[in-house]
């Protein structure tokens, strides 16, 4: 299992690096999909099969298809020149510094914790985590689930109105 962790980490980091260093946007998009696959590998190792499949079904199967389509329709086969200004550099350096400090913080303070609650690994293996997630969504977290679905519904109607409007 340890070896698998390192393989997935290598793939994730390598493909994430390729996403930002590739000149061709479509190749970047494909490397991002590879990155999603590495993530779903992590989820499987953590016994979260449902999340792993959703990662591929939603991100790789739906969202990235739209990204690829937009790249194809805009016909940007190659980025010719990258323009950077002072603000971009400043914000970029600031964000990467914050993330770096966070990682250091986690490495120093992190320790193995025992899982709390009734859903231990053995229980999840027995009933499967899809059922557990479903049960929670429709009992304890019904309100937030409903709010999310209303938000999505509003977004769909909004998209429809924007697309329908004739200028």
């Amino acid at each position: 299992m340890e070896a698998l962790f390192y393989i997935f980490s290598f793939i994730a980091i390598f493909s994430a690096l390729m996403v930002i260093s590739m000149k061709n946007p479509l190749t970047s998009a494909l490397y991002l999909i590879l990155c999603f696959f590495a993530f779903s590998g992590f989820y499987v190792m953590l016994d979260m099969q449902f999340l792993a499949v959703m990662q591929i079904l939603v991100y790789a199967g739906a969202i990235m298809v739209l990204v690829v389509l937009v790249i194809m329709i805009l016909n940007i086969s190659k980025i010719k020149r990258v323009e950077t200004d002072f603000h971009q550099k400043f914000i970029g350096i600031l964000i990467s510094l914050i993330i770096f400090v966070e990682i250091i913080f986690y490495i120093i303070n992190g320790s193995q914790k025992k899982s709390t609650g009734i859903f231990t690994g053995a229980v999840i293996k027995k009933i499967g985590n899809t059922q557990i997630i479903g049960e929670f969504l429709f009992t304890k977290y019904t309100l937030s689930f409903e709010i999310a679905s209303v938000l999505l519904f509003v977004a769909i109607i909004g998209a429809y109105i924007f697309a329908k409007k004739k200028f």
């Binding site: 499949v53 079904l57 790789a60």
Partner: peptide
């Protein structure tokens, strides 16, 4: 234990080859 979802996830990838 997520067989059906596994199938759906893989069929959703078929579009890339064509595109």
């Amino acid at each position: 234990n997520i067989g059906v979802l596994f199938i759906l996830a893989l069929t959703s990838l078929g579009v890339y080859g064509v595109v």
